[in-house]
């Protein structure tokens, strides 16, 4: 094998996949054409689909990454050919009920806008979080806890509070999530005020969430990647096939 032929072989065998699997898809994906609604009566929207999301998305997504949440949680609702995510009770959205239509959908390419990297995730030791905000909002309705407070309490001590699901099949579940004490500060009770979490603290002290915890929780409760508040153009919404129920 001649040296020149060797180098040429390496350039070709690596350069081609590099162009086809990295460079070209990268430039395609950075300027996707926005999706258009088909019309109010067809898919419930008009004009161009602009995903809406409230909260400290960019900051919170960074904290999510820094804390390594993606090692145990995913954020990907796969199409039915690739997995059963949309069929699970509330991962892809809400099942049809008296209060809401079927809001489930797959993950869209715009779902991670504003984040530096899509936290697809490594493993599912815990739940998929694509619709964590939606689950919290629905399940905590009528209780004293706001989604934010529930999240703070969960991060501080995951097994110190009752699960948020009231009627679901996971009623009995005990969280297996390790706590994140590093996200909270212990301050004097006098300056904590309304920020103090309702948890045990030493005499005269209170536990308050740090700014990073606030950003993270703001991001987490913003995870509502379904069609409840904002319909999705029909081109992007492959309504999940309703499997023959259990």
């Amino acid at each position: 094998m001649k040296f020149k032929a060797f180098i040429f072989g390496l350039l070709a065998s690596f350069g081609l996949p590099w162009l086809l699997a990295i460079v070209v898809p990268f430039s395609t994906m950075r300027s996707l054409d926005p999706a258009k609604y088909a019309g109010i009566e067809i898919d419930g929207g008009e004009g161009i689909y602009i995903p809406k999301r409230d909260g400290r998305i960019s900051e919170g997504s960074d904290v999510y990454g820094q804390e390594g949440c993606y090692y145990c949680h995913t954020q990907l609702v796969r199409p039915t050919y690739a997995g059963s995510d949309v069929w699970r009770a509330d991962w892809g959205g809400l099942k049809k009920s008296a209060d809401n239509p079927d809001t489930r959908r797959e993950t869209l390419s715009t779902d991670y806008d504003g984040e530096k990297i899509a936290h697809i995730g490594v493993m599912r030791v815990g739940h998929d979080l694509s619709n964590l905000g939606r689950r919290l909002e629905t399940n905590l309705k009528g209780t004293q806890l706001s989604p934010e407070t529930w999240m703070f309490l969960h991060l501080y001590n995951p097994r110190g509070i009752a699960p948020y699901r009231k009627n679901s099949q996971d009623r009995e579940e005990r969280s297996a999530c390790p706590s994140k004490p590093g996200l909270f500060n212990e301050v004097s009770k006098n300056i904590a005020g309304f920020d103090a979490l309702p948890v045990a603290a030493p005499e005269g002290k209170a536990i308050v969430p740090s700014d990073r915890a606030r950003a993270l929780v703001s991001y987490l409760v913003s995870l509502k990647k379904d069609t409840l508040e904002q319909p999705v153009p029909q081109d992007l919404n492959y309504n999940p096939i309703q499997p023959v129920a259990k």
Binding site: G68, Y71, S179, P181
Partner: peptide
């Protein structure tokens, strides 16, 4: 930490996730 979530729970340096990384 994946099967004993309380393991070294008090030490934020060894928080789950960060320690995997």
């Amino acid at each position: 930490k994946k099967h004993m979530p309380e393991f070294l729970g008090g030490c934020s340096l060894f928080d789950a996730g960060k320690i995997d990384a």
